[in-house]
Design a protein around this nucleic acid. Sequence first.
DNA 1: TGTACATCAGTGAACGCGCGTTCACTGATGTAC
DNA 2: TGTACATCAGTGAACGCGCGTTCACTGATGTAC
Lengths: 225, 225
Amino acid sequence: MLTLTTLTSMPFGVDTVNMETVKPYHHGSLQTSLVEAGFELARQGGPDAVGLRAVTRAAGVSHNAAYRHFADREQLLVAVSTRCMRELALLMEARTAEVQVRDRRRRARSRLVAIGEAYVEFATTEPGWFRTAFAVTDMAGSVDGPALGVGDEGLGPYELLGARLDELVEVGELPAERRPGAEFAAWAVVHGLATLLTEGPLQGLPVADRGHAVAIALGVVQRGL
Amino acid sequence: MLTLTTLTSMPFGVDTVNMETVKPYHHGSLQTSLVEAGFELARQGGPDAVGLRAVTRAAGVSHNAAYRHFADREQLLVAVSTRCMRELALLMEARTAEVQVRDRRRRARSRLVAIGEAYVEFATTEPGWFRTAFAVTDMAGSVDGPALGVGDEGLGPYELLGARLDELVEVGELPAERRPGAEFAAWAVVHGLATLLTEGPLQGLPVADRGHAVAIALGVVQRGL
DNA sequence: TGTACATCAGTGAACGCGCGTTCACTGATGTAC
DNA sequence: TGTACATCAGTGAACGCGCGTTCACTGATGTAC
């Protein structure tokens, strides 16, 4: 199993070390550092932990240096949220790539299951990041679908789901007439599982039973599609 | 369509009026009043709006009178959350009772759909209450299932779902061997829809499309069960 | 039937907390001439 | 090649906010005698 933190490279490598020792007046990449600090804070404390003061404190900078880079707390949170969303998308992609099935049809199904499982895996192993990813939702929705973007860097979770469903159609595992709206069903189960297991009343469910619950729910959706 | 607020009677009738005019030193039913005030605050502002000071202010009482009835803010929130959960259960029961279908099998299916729709209806029409209902989740989980209780006053949402699924089995619409774990699938879709439409990235979905999305998702689960 | 007194349910002032935000500032950078 | 100066990125003190919680208190209630 991949460690989640290995999915993305460090924001800047050597500079971080130099910063510790030299500590120049001009930071050089403070914006990135602040987002990264917020990302780490969000890991433990969720969106509420991402504050202007907390983030600047963690970056070793005076508390209102952040105002050079973000208009207010909300904008910082948007940036950190996007960062979390990208992390989710990266895990989904990684788990998809791991699928080793020859048969096109079975392969397409496995890959759909894989992104679903990755979604729930992300939520349960990194609940703080998961909550933060969905803490900001008033990014203007696009016409093509809801805004679950991760900026210019790759596809978002929603796009990845769409790609899997398209694949299912291509391969003949999903009747084309059932394709429209299929996202809603697939996404809803998986998001529901993630939320119930993470923040909701299924929090206390023994870890052993979790996989079971996920398997049942994903099975029902697969059969229903 | 029922108005949600009509589902429960006022906490106390005449006393409320008298309280306004007489305002005795001893309130008489402050605990109930505080919970009810929290319930109203939660309607607009969700769980964060349920504070000791906010609630006492709304009840027209000094800010720490609440400590006679609740050990701390958390306990107040638990009480208000339970209140919200009961409201959800009441809507689910009301919508179930409205189903008018003769055929036993079709009736059982309709009633399952009805509680699912009620769940989503509650979340979208009363997002503050919905969020508050699920804001407290560390009530010790029971052995029989997750703690989604509403105290001594009737069944909780989880129990209602179980009843519908049992009915489906009785009536022959759900193979008994698929009954175990069926809650997970059903609950997950519905909770996922509720969350995505309410707090998540589907917030911006035009109201017209909502019903469509819900119908598709519920259809998939029905078919999959 | 009356009264003393324990108990209970409120009051009001005060504390400390961390937060977002604003202000006037200073140190570093880079570019026009 | 050198220097003045605008611009940019950071600093540090201060403000006001609402919150939960604690303290010592007072007013009302009901019960034992």
